[in-house]
Write a protein that binds this DNA or RNA. Structure first.
Lengths: 214, 214
DNA sequence: GTTTTATCGATAAATTGATACTGATATAAT
DNA sequence: ATTATATCAGTATCAATTTATCGATAAAAC
């Protein structure tokens, strides 16, 4: 049973806020304060005080102390543990275009438990290259690669029209989760985790707000 | 007055779905069908039928026809217009690291009305380079640049600890919106639009789902 | 031309997430 | 030691979003 004393139904919104808490708490680590209260976090991060308390209660087993707040070090540890900083998932990336290369080179994912170990592309010009110390193989080699080295997370950075095909391939390769950067809904069997990253959506929101303002 | 016959309070969630509608509708353009119904879109995109209808009603002035649905071409046009594909916003990017370079090179933003015209970095090694035809200048030159060439959108891809400083600089340079890729809450005066892009959040969600499953 | 039916649009219900409120409690001040 | 107070945790309220229901209607079938 996956029974913990923490609620196992934390909303995606809460999850989204965790990295912000973490980043803020880390800025306090160098200072001399060792406790932080929910109202202070809330005002710094422009959130509601109760919301902060609920978020923290959901992911941390430690209780806050009246008049002082929460112990910063403990909070940092709990958030990191909850986020999965301690896990180590192997990932491969398919589509070594601009976006793909950037993600390959980006070093921030290790802090969130993801280790991208290789990339794949069907473009002969990309195959064989080395990006940030990671090799780019031909997509045809993907299945064999995953037989030898079990991969948990597949990252899709191919154009929208190719995304489903790559998705099918990744599922055949037995990945447990797919992180999809193409703006398309992928068809997947039950049990495979899909996380859509939607950069265009943010631009849409910006455009809308800009248009509203003027 | 910014009065249209469309509701001007479309939720962020709806906005987030629009790119998916658009991408799906475009796949139908090559086929021989010219009408699409809300139930079909819903099942393809794994959404609720009513939700699809509401989203479309919010952004399109055209009515759907019983037994047929919505005219695909009209929908595509309406979504594109709403998203702001037709606008042309000038953007600059600060922080020509891995992520920054990727965004510079990524060609998909034009389709959403954003044209990144230059990049800035304080690292001498990056200054002077050309990335995807766009020059990287020193951050010190940012203010002058924006005086000559008005910039609407500032993109922050610097490390978390430098983000606020760059944010202040961009505001001094009179940008109207800031697209922030650092996982920190930025302090800004009223009137400046902030859109946070939070790649770490997605990883958090994936990790959580993976942990739940096993 | 009439009937059947898929889909629409609108309204209502339910769910979810955010915010406000209240009593309890540990810390700090007197 | 006693009092005052900031903050916590839990409960209740409120707002927003999603989902369900229902009559109306245009297209298709007969």
């Amino acid at each position: 049973m996956s029974d913990k004393n923490l609620p196992n139904q934390v909303s995606a919104n809460t999850l989204r806020r965790l990295p912000y808490y973490l980043s803020y708490l880390k800025t306090l680590k160098n200072t001399d304060v060792s406790y932080i209260s929910a109202p202070v976090i809330a005002s710094e991060l422009d959130l509601n005080e109760v919301q902060v308390r609920k978020d923290l209660a959901a992911i941390s087993s430690v209780a806050g102390k009246p008049k002082k707040g929460f112990e910063i070090d403990v909070l940092i540890n709990d958030i990191q543990a909850y986020i999965g900083c301690d896990v180590n998932n192997c990932g491969i990336l398919v589509g070594a275009g601009h976006l793909g290369r950037a993600l390959l080179a980006y070093s921030g994912f290790e802090a969130y438990g993801l280790n991208i170990i290789a990339a794949f592309d069907s473009n002969p010009a990309a195959v064989g290259k080395d990006i940030a110390g990671k090799s780019v193989y031909h997509t045809d080699a993907l299945l064999d690669f995953c037989k030898k080295t079990p991969v948990t997370i597949g990252i899709i950075t191919v154009p929208a029209e190719d995304a489903q095909e790559i998705c099918d391939l990744l599922i055949k390769a037995n990945v447990k989760a797919i992180w999809n950067f193409a703006p398309v809904k992928l068809c997947t069997p039950d049990g495979v985790i899909i996380q859509n990253e939607n950069i265009a959506a943010s631009l849409t929101i910006i455009n809308k707000k800009l248009a509203e303002q003027f």
